[in-house]
Design a protein around this nucleic acid. Sequence first.
DNA 1: CCGATATATTTCAAGCTTGAAATTTCAGGC
DNA 2: GCCTGAAATTTCAAGCTTGAAATATATCGG
Lengths: 158, 158
Amino acid sequence: MTKAKERPAPSPASKESLRLWLRILKVQRMVEAELRERLRVEFDTTLPRFDVMSALYRYRDGMKMSELSRALKVSNGNVTGIVDRLAEDGLALRVPVPGDRRAAMVRLTKRGVELFEAQAAAHEVWVHEALGGLEGEESAMVARMLDHALTEGDDDAE
Amino acid sequence: MTKAKERPAPSPASKESLRLWLRILKVQRMVEAELRERLRVEFDTTLPRFDVMSALYRYRDGMKMSELSRALKVSNGNVTGIVDRLAEDGLALRVPVPGDRRAAMVRLTKRGVELFEAQAAAHEVWVHEALGGLEGEESAMVARMLDHALTEGDDDAE
DNA sequence: CCGATATATTTCAAGCTTGAAATTTCAGGC
DNA sequence: GCCTGAAATTTCAAGCTTGAAATATATCGG
């Protein structure tokens, strides 16, 4: 009989996971496209910039580049360029670390903080407009189950 | 008393949506990073290439560039480059459309079909490994609720 | 102090992505 | 047969993203 190559059989369970994955991707792309467009039109900025500013806003005392890239789960070199551009615009700042001449703390400037607060407020409303189709309880449940779906590999919690 | 600027109040509901959104994003980034890495290491390819091939595999008779970009929800110009590279590698092909000299049908080559089948089988297993933390019923339920979360803006199904 | 190894960051090439402008072709009205 | 506007695609500049290589500094054993 024609026996194909030694691939793991496509179980019904994996088909179900695949379906869930495609659904997640669809939602994510839809919402992200909306957010990107709005950030562009209303604040003339981009999602990556917003993400970086968001991390810096949370850690008001500053973060090292490496912390930043770990927090955002993007590559080292990536953050360099974004922070460069934020710095050019006077929204972020590199502060030398006293004991270590390799590292630098990145911080939002006053202008950066103010601008981000406006953006974040709008952002929250946009997200709710896009994802508001669930009643309060459900929303929390989906979030919990999504967490649970990740079989492993967690590191930093919120 | 200090009354801030006239921003829409950050309702508890929007906070809940924001939490869900961050969870979706976290799962998406985690799984996507895993898939990207595996595609790179085991097939020396990229996620965008896989996505395009996936669409072309489903529409075996070929798709116009515009159909492709609409299906993947990415910009027109984006698809051009990816298809160019797939064509260079002999995996895809532009076929002229008889009645319309502007358009072209893009199709997978035989090699493209074969390669994609191997990649897709592996991909399905990887997704299940990453997202397998839910029992069969739950997985379907989360998928359904995610769909429901999108309050509007649907176009093409599945 | 030296050398080896580890850390923090930047640089770089290649590819992805977008939105806008440019091209080419088509279709319909006149 | 033209003209005008629509449609399909490509081109382009700017920015994002990665993984790997390069730089610079730190740390530690001897």
